[in-house]
């Protein structure tokens, strides 16, 4: 009975931790992505100063959660986001609207991918590995 309780306890603990990680990841990524969603509206107005400020705010939020993100995401996924911020800031400084739009869309897509990749959808269970490897 001791071993059964240990096994069931461990399964429950792992399921609980997994669901907690899922919830916390979504909360953190929503918080990080919120300034980037505001940037969407500013792109139409071509307000580069505000875009830059909001991007830096989003980046500092991302950095504040880095320790947590490092414990659940691979280095490649983290580097993708870092690279996304670097491109976004560079295009905002150069005031290149087309590239800025593209970099902004890609960064939001990457964040959405990170948010969704641990959701218990059948395609995540069946093909998650291949999607991560071949379609980042």
């Amino acid at each position: 009975m001791k071993y059964l309780m240990l096994g069931l306890g461990l399964m429950a603990l792992l399921l609980g931790s997994s669901l907690f990680v899922l919830w916390r990841t979504a909360c953190c990524l929503d918080e990080v992505a919120a300034p980037l969603h505001t940037v969407q509206a500013l792109l139409e107005e071509e307000d580069y100063e505000s875009i830059l400020a909001l991007t830096e705010e989003s980046q500092s939020l991302w950095e504040s959660h880095r320790g947590y993100f490092c414990s659940i995401f691979s280095h490649a996924e983290l580097e993708d986001i870092d690279q996304g911020y670097a491109s976004l800031i560079a295009y905002a400084e150069q005031e290149e609207l087309a590239e800025l739009r593209d970099a902004h869309r890609r960064l939001l897509e990457r964040m959405e991918h990170l948010r969704r990749m641990d959701l218990p959808y059948y395609y995540n269970i069946l093909t998650g590995f291949f999607r991560l490897c071949f379609d980042p």
């Binding site: 071993y3 059964l4 096994g7 069931l8 399964m11 414990s71 995401f73 691979s74 280095h75």
Partner: peptide
């Protein structure tokens, strides 16, 4: 692969351990 988070190895190992404990008891 140090680029992978530790949880990527620990979660499956602990899951297998828990399943083995449950199935051996059953």
């Amino acid at each position: 692969d140090p680029a992978l988070p530790l949880s990527a190895g620990l979660v499956p190992i602990l899951t297998v351990l828990a399943l083995e404990l449950i199935l051996s008891w059953l």
